[in-house]
Design a binder for these strands. Sequence first.
DNA 1: CATGAATGAGAATTCATTCAT
DNA 2: TATGAATGAATTCTCATTCAT
Lengths: 211, 211, 211, 211
Amino acid sequence: MQSKTRTIGRDGPSFIEVARRAQIVECAIETIATVGYAQASLNQIAERAGISKSVISYHFTGKDELIQQVLADVNQAAAAVMWPKVQAETTSAGMLRAYLQSHLDFMRTHPHHVAAVSEILIYHRTQTDLDADTTPLEERLRQGQRDGEFRQFSPRLMAWTIRAALDEVARQYVANPGLDLDECARELVGTFTAATASVPRLGAVPESRGQ
Amino acid sequence: MQSKTRTIGRDGPSFIEVARRAQIVECAIETIATVGYAQASLNQIAERAGISKSVISYHFTGKDELIQQVLADVNQAAAAVMWPKVQAETTSAGMLRAYLQSHLDFMRTHPHHVAAVSEILIYHRTQTDLDADTTPLEERLRQGQRDGEFRQFSPRLMAWTIRAALDEVARQYVANPGLDLDECARELVGTFTAATASVPRLGAVPESRGQ
Amino acid sequence: MQSKTRTIGRDGPSFIEVARRAQIVECAIETIATVGYAQASLNQIAERAGISKSVISYHFTGKDELIQQVLADVNQAAAAVMWPKVQAETTSAGMLRAYLQSHLDFMRTHPHHVAAVSEILIYHRTQTDLDADTTPLEERLRQGQRDGEFRQFSPRLMAWTIRAALDEVARQYVANPGLDLDECARELVGTFTAATASVPRLGAVPESRGQ
Amino acid sequence: MQSKTRTIGRDGPSFIEVARRAQIVECAIETIATVGYAQASLNQIAERAGISKSVISYHFTGKDELIQQVLADVNQAAAAVMWPKVQAETTSAGMLRAYLQSHLDFMRTHPHHVAAVSEILIYHRTQTDLDADTTPLEERLRQGQRDGEFRQFSPRLMAWTIRAALDEVARQYVANPGLDLDECARELVGTFTAATASVPRLGAVPESRGQ
DNA sequence: CATGAATGAGAATTCATTCAT
DNA sequence: TATGAATGAATTCTCATTCAT
């Protein structure tokens, strides 16, 4: 019986059902992160999971549902880790730092997750609204500008840059697990703190935004 | 007969050979940039070029060689445009600015080239050595640090970040050709100038923004 | 455990067994009639029945047995309705009329049954002996000829034609439930009464047979 | 290169292309007529043609195009044989006779063609307008009524019946090539001549229509 | 040089069936 | 009895590649 048509009783999906779906999602993540989205066929994913290809078809309507589940699972997990830390900060600079650090923390514990989502988003770029994903970050940057903590830059461009940097680190980390994420965190925090800071302490470059 | 095994007379490949290869590479670029790497089958490329699919197989060992040629051609073209401008600068900050600006200039004049390479790098990342490509930029950042112009950051991380930001802009530009590249250039220059500046000391690097 | 191998106690199949089989057959009929034989997967049938797919496999050896049971059940039901009315007639023409009318009556009350059988026969024709089904009708036609009521035609051909016409009406009725079955009955009765009548009384249409 | 994208020069498709398409269509017809539409996979068809499965994909956009081509080819061939003979007749009864006879003539020379189309039409009934196909015949019946040659029956019902009978004969002929088509032709002509004749001259069978 | 034609590998998906519980 | 879970075979389709001309 396929997911689509399965009757969900009042107890919801069975334990084994949940476990299998989770296992498949996990294997999909690892496969995508490792061999790339283009090569991540259902066959590959099933092989890695040690199950038959059709088991995936049994638990998911199709590849699409699986991919969407990957995005959902990873986003939820990442958000659970990141936003509390971000919210705990009181300043915008603190939030930005927390955003970067917690992102890299999540990457350390879930490197494949981040890489997989990065792959998927790129692959599905045409069908997805990437901006939607970037919006929360962008909004925080905007807030920092309103508060005068941040200099006047384009929040959208900065958000793109930050996300791109994080994704790049994720990819590099997957390719080379020896990468020192602590150092990366420090570096990115340093880079984007400097990049956004409204005051280079003495005499800013206010005119620099005039143009 | 395959390119690799073809007998090359003392004059090297014939004119028509060179022209055909260039034409095919060009069409590959446009196809990849337009429909995405995943959809860019040899069929699509050949169709767009108005040639038979087998012509590609004749002039290239296989799809791989074609893709590598795309990378080589674009990199060469980009380098031809960019490095003179970079070299013309005397300060490291100036070089960084020139790097970013000329990169976006190239993007403006060759949007498909940049987008195609961006696509390809994502899909072939596992098989490609991205670092090789990043090295020249990294070296220049390192030089800026030695000269005291730049603060102490990880040149590698900074190079990754810069490349990632440029690639992201390229992707966004392809998705939305209305994107204001001038603004992007100003923003990226501002961002990375601030991110690398050694001393926010007093009066920043006004000349860097003058442009 | 499969039906074939199941141990049948001295009381034969249990009540629940019989009921389940009947329910499944009924659902199969509706599914086939509604979505067509090709689309009537066990999944679809089970879904419509609100049961698990494996229940079907439990009660029937396989899809084949289910389909054969559908044929058997429908034929039995149709026979139960039709033959009494046919038998009640004293003339062969009357019997033919009763056959057609009661067939369409059955169609009106069991449109899905007729449509399902029609679908199945088409798909399983190669494996089924259609003639077996046609024989009773054929025999009656033959009797009518012996009695001099019917002209000399090929009973087999006429039986085929009659069955084909009825099946066609069934298909059209399924496709368009607004079809006026009363009119169809009148028409078919008229058509086949005329087609079988022994005497166009004076001068038949000899040239038509001259061919 | 696929049919879809193939450039057709001023000479149209090449000889070999035409031949291959014709061969594939022919094999599709035989396969469908022999094993039934449901079992006629591209694999089966290719095997029968002694070619690789992908050759079909090369010459046809997909299974749909192949099937449509089958319909088109058979309809064209049948029309070429039938309509001249039908048109040559001056009376409606003659036309009907010619229609039936030429149909069976075509069946004799192309039994698989007729059976295949019959299969396809049934399978695609839901997506196709069968009536459209029946219309020419129906129109001729209507004309016969206007001329007073035919009695007042429902032209639509009669057309359905005639088509159904012909299809049935086709199916039986495929299943049993020993079937005497001459006899079938005589029988069907007799049956439908009698069924449509306006005057049973003296005393019809009024009670049969009374119902 | 060029290409039409052919091919085999592999993709996603559907389905009837089997099995352990 | 019943069923959720799993599976392997088969289907359509796409694609890079090869080959004969």
